[in-house]
């Protein structure tokens, strides 16, 4: 116990001295969260990234897994003792994850900035601009958002007018209702999200009977960890789902396109529009 206190005291003293020396543009940025990892990779100069979280190397979850692996950044597992020796001048993470670690790091004098959850493209853009500002590179944020808007405009030209009913269905019987990014993307792509009609807000469970009764024309699935098996994933192979959509395969979106906010969300939108047009 005493040893731990000594360690903490040393770390504290060390970090205080670092905090004072922190320049306007953070030079050693640590990200503790998959979503901030990805934005950081897209916005920051490589030499300013001190560490990203281990999840950013998982190809199922991370859109930048290849880049992270190629760059060989130190990976952190959201542990305080991993982060202190990196001597970061900016730590970024999600709003609701690793609260204790973030609080401890703040107590030790580190600068910790948290990013709120995103429920639509506007939130995503706000997070992009916020990180760009924190990095001292506001123009890069503006450029990225402008590129996204331009891409959005191009994509939306091909959207059919009349929306068709659809519903997302994920492992363990979860769906995305109103106030979710997927809900907005579905609307943009010409799909009517009937989960929202059922009063589901955010990410919530839907029982199979309600799903069948709702009568979606298409199902949207995103296979997380494909090739693995669990009872939760079995929900997606219930034979009634195939019968429900007259044997048409569901619209499959890679999980990594939607887990976090960023330009990759538009790839998901593109696939939704393609599916709507092919229908």
């Amino acid at each position: 116990m005493k040893g731990l206190f000594t360690l903490l005291a040393c770390a504290f003293a060390l970090s205080m001295s670092l905090a004072h020396a922190s320049p306007a543009k953070p030079q050693r940025v640590v990200s503790m969260n998959l979503c901030t990892d990805q934005l950081l990779m897209l916005l920051a100069d490589p030499e300013r990234i001190a560490s990203v979280s281990y999840l950013s190397t998982e190809p199922d979850s991370s859109f930048v897994a290849d880049k992270v692996l190629a760059a060989g950044y130190p990976l952190n597992h959201n542990r305080v003792e991993e982060i202190i020796p990196l001597q970061p001048d900016l730590i970024i993470t999600g709003q609701y994850l690793h609260l204790q670690e973030a609080q401890l790091l703040r107590t030790l004098g580190f600068r910790v900035e948290t990013f709120p959850v995103f429920n639509n493209l506007a939130d995503v853009k706000a997070n992009i601009q916020r990180l760009a500002d924190l990095l001292g590179e506001p123009q890069r944020g503006k450029d990225m958002i402008a590129a996204m808007d331009a891409r959005l405009d191009t994509l939306l030209q091909a959207v059919p007018k009349a929306p068709r009913p659809a519903l997302s269905y994920h492992a363990r019987g979860y769906t995305q209702g109103s106030n979710t990014l997927l809900h907005e993307l579905m609307q943009l792509a010409g799909w009517h999200n009937i989960a929202a009609d059922l009063g589901i807000q955010g990410y919530g469970p839907i029982d199979l009977e309600s799903l069948v009764l709702a009568g979606p024309h298409a199902l949207i699935v995103s296979h997380f960890a494909p090739g693995t098996r669990s009872l939760g994933q079995e929900y997606l192979s219930h034979p009634v789902l195939k019968q429900l959509t007259d044997g048409r395969p569901p619209i499959a979106l890679d999980a990594r396109l939607l887990i976090c906010g960023g330009p990759m969300n538009l790839i998901a939108l593109e696939k939704l529009i393609e599916a709507r047009n092919a229908d």
Binding site: G227, R229, S230, L231, G232
Partner: peptide
């Protein structure tokens, strides 16, 4: 140890039992 990320949460399905979401198969 199971490869699926959902596996860990499923102990309750095995220890308490559930007949939900079953098919004719």
């Amino acid at each position: 140890l199971a490869p699926s990320p959902y596996a860990v949460q499923e102990i309750v399905l095995w220890t308490l039992g559930s007949v939900a979401n079953k098919s004719l198969r």
